[in-house]
Structure formats: C-alpha cells, structure tokens
Design a protein around this nucleic acid. Structure first.
Length: 272
DNA sequence: ACATCTACCTGGAGGC
DNA sequence: TGCCTCCAGGTAGATG
C-alpha cells in the first residue's frame, strides 16, 4: 500500500526521467478514478515541460509552467516509466507521454487514486490547502502534537492518522510508530504527556525515514519491465502480526478494530 | 469544533 | 469448481 515512504520513493525514482522533459500527450483509458480525470488534462499539459516533481503528504505534484498535475496513488496505485509502445494492462488508466516516447504510466486496480489539475499555486488546491504538517520537516515535533491534541478525546491512533494534523501516516505506520513510542493505540490524544509526544514524533519520523531508505535500496527499477512497481515489504514489529510474539518482550501481539481499521499492538510494551 | 461513519473499488483469501 | 462474504486500504464528505 502506498504510504508516504512509497510515494516518496516513487517520486525519487521518477524524478530523473521526467524533470526537464516535455509532455507530448496524455492518454486517458479510464477516467473514472476517485474523481474523474479532467477531460481537458491533455490539452492543458501538452507541450508543457516538467519543471519539478514534488510531494505533499501522499500527493505527487508534477509542476508544469501552466499549472500542476496532482497525482494520488490511493491504496493500489503505482507509477512506472515505460516505453509508450508497451501494451497497457487492464488497470493501466493513464499515460503521461513524453517527447522521447517514454511515458509515466499509472496503474491502479482499485481506482482509489486521483489525477487532477491545479491552476496557479497547487498548494491552494482544495485537496492540499488544509493538510497538516509534513512529518519529515522541522515543523513536526512532539510539542506540535502536544499542543494540537489538548482536550481531544479521540484515540491517539486516529489522531495521528488524520491528515489535518500530520500527513502521510497511514494504518501501517501508525501502528508501527505507536509501538516504537510505547503508546497504547486507544489512549485519548488529549491525555498524553509532552514527553510521550516527543517519543511519538521521533518514532513517526524515524519509522518513515527508515522505510524510505529501505524502499530506495529494495524497490526494483522504475524503468523498463512491465507490471506494477512492487511496493517494498518491510519488517514490521506489530502490523499484521496478530498472535505472533513481540520482538521486544515475547508477549503475543494483539489485534483490535478502531474506526473500521485493524490495529495491532503489544499490550506489554504499549501502555495506557 | 470535534468525533465518527460511509462511500468509493477490486483482488485475494477463506468458507461452504 | 464455483459462489459468497469479508477484508484491505486513504480520505473527502456526510452525519451525529
């Protein structure tokens, strides 16, 4: 599942093949993603040169002179660089074809992803304007989480997964970061001390950073071979490890549901 | 203002 | 073998 580390790894993988190249054409085979791909996208992007590729949360931004293509991979999306003559599979919904006849091809079996156009400053786009802080910047800290969480009754896991607070923390990394911080996922966000938030912010940051490093070394090349870019398999401490032993204390990892999402934790390492 | 729920979609796993 | 049900996931938008 593309969480922030996968999105960042994708961005870094695509960057050298795309920056400075000019878009020849955009081919939309299936516009029905989470929101319809704008019918004007081809017209808007044609002959535009890619200035830069950036990321905000889990959104990849393709910066052009006239505007920005905003891409979200949803939960099953992937991007690859392919020769545009490569036959498209059933779930290959859109190609951004470059003048050199390579293309960025988006595959998204579950179609939770999105490809949109932003005029002007893309950070003012409705999808981006209300996003919280980036977890890998200096703005993100234990003090930030502490201040934001006062008097909040929602569970800490829901709190850190809310992109209005901090972006890029999906279910996997929320579980993992809470384990590393020793915080029980059901604890009310407003009842957590400043000191524990410092540990949590550190855990979120380092868990994401380690995954980006692991992704950079293990992810197969973004260019060439057909098929979706394989997302890297991490060694998880709690995620998906129900009834397996905790690597730290040997107790069995427990499973519960919060907001229709699976939560995994070690009751001995993660205290209320 | 905040908290919780629903909807979107499809492939894969497990049960019968 | 085939059908059915459930689950996974991000997150905007609706609802409480």
């Amino acid at each position: 599942m593309p969480e922030l580390p996968e999105v960042e790894t994708t961005r870094r993988g695509l960057m050298p093949h795309v920056t400075g190249h000019t878009i020849k054409q955009i081919i939309v085979r299936n516009a029905k993603l989470r929101w319809p791909i704008p019918t004007t996208l081809d017209m808007l992007a044609q002959q535009q040169t890619v200035q830069n590729l950036s990321r905000r949360g889990k959104y990849i931004l393709v910066h052009l002179n006239a505007g920005t293509i905003i891409i979200h991979l949803g939960m099953s999306g992937s991007l690859r660089i392919l020769d545009s003559s490569t036959p498209a599979g059933v779930h290959d919904h859109i190609d951004i074809v470059l003048q050199n006849n390579f293309c960025i091809r988006m595959r998204d079996p579950r179609r939770f992803g999105a490809v949109l156009w932003a005029e002007g400053d893309p950070f003012n786009h409705p999808l981006l304007v209300n996003l919280g802080v980036e977890p890998l910047t200096d703005d993100f800290s234990g003090d930030y989480l502490y201040a934001l969480s006062r008097h909040r009754r929602s569970a800490i896991k829901s709190f850190i997964m809310d992109s209005h607070h901090v972006v890029g923390v999906g279910n996997i990394y929320a579980n993992e970061a809470l384990f590393h911080a020793g915080i029980h996922p059901e604890l009310a966000a407003g009842k957590i001390s400043r000191a524990r938030y410092a540990k949590l912010a550190f855990a979120i940051r380092t868990t994401l950073e380690k995954a980006i490093i692991a992704g950079g070394s293990s992810l197969r090349d973004f260019v060439g071979s057909d098929g979706a870019a394989g997302y890297f398999q991490q060694q998880y401490f709690v995620y998906g490890r129900t009834d397996l032993t905790c690597h730290t204390c040997g107790q069995l990892i427990r499973h519960l549901r919060q907001n229709q999402r699976s939560t995994f934790y070690c009751a001995s390492c993660q205290k209320k």
